[in-house]
Simulated assay, not measured.
Amino acid sequence: MQALINAGGKGTRMGACGTEKPMQTIGGKPVIKRVVDALSGSASIDEIAVSVSEHTLETEKYLKSIGVRTIRTSGENFMEDLHESFEALDGEFVLTCPSDLPFISTIELDKFISEFDPGKMESMIAIVDKKAFDKLDIKPSYTRDYYGSEWVVSGVSIMDREKTLRGVYLQESFYETDSLDFAVNVNTQEELEQARKIIDRKGCTKA
């Protein structure tokens, strides 16, 4: 399976801080490298590509220096970047992952992938129990109701690439988790500092 990391956004919620969001360091390592490492460790992932844009030129330069494939997109919005990236790929299904998940791990990714049934599913989305955020003292920006409980969309999904490009509405399946690996997105300065504190408490530098 091919994997696509989305790293071409403007990162406006992070604010002006002199460093592109994917290049922010947590535990001494750029967030984008932590995500790449987690995906690289999975035996289910055959190829990794990262979508970049004029908004993330330093990220693009860094990824090329470590031998990671990049796909240049417009950076206008998520769906436009997704379609442009999917056009450059050729797999039937693609795992998509945001570049701002500092705690994503190979172990949890493999659990997620193992639940996907390509014969029965068109897409599968990882959703995180809101209670996991309460434990971390993090307030998610958006929640959705699922069977009477509040869940947060992590941004990790598996999608039928060809149907997406044809504009077909994909039937959604959900992977429910309360794992920290999926729970922390780094979109703001506050979330960045919280992630760094979590790393410090865990005493680890690897994803």
Rank of each mutant, 00 (worst) to 15 (best):
L4Y: 08
L4M: 05
R13Y: 09
M14C: 04
A16F: 03
C17F: 01
T19H: 04
K21P: 05
I26N: 03
G27K: 09
K29N: 11
I32H: 03
K33M: 13
R34I: 08
S40T: 08
S44W: 03
D46Y: 03
E47V: 01
E47S: 14
I48C: 04
V50I: 10
E58P: 00
T59Y: 01
G75D: 03
G75S: 06
E80G: 11
E80Q: 13
L82Y: 06
E84V: 05
D90Y: 14
G91M: 04
G91C: 14
C97T: 08
I104N: 01
D110Y: 06
I113R: 01
I113D: 02
S114R: 12
E115L: 10
F116P: 02
D117A: 10
P118G: 08
M124K: 15
D134Q: 12
L136S: 04
I138T: 04
P140I: 07
G148E: 12
S149K: 13
S149L: 12
M159D: 14
K163F: 04
L165T: 08
V168G: 02
Q171I: 14
E176P: 04
T177M: 10
L180D: 02
N185P: 03
V186I: 15
V186S: 05
L192Y: 12
L192F: 09
E193W: 12
D200F: 05
C204E: 15
K206Y: 15
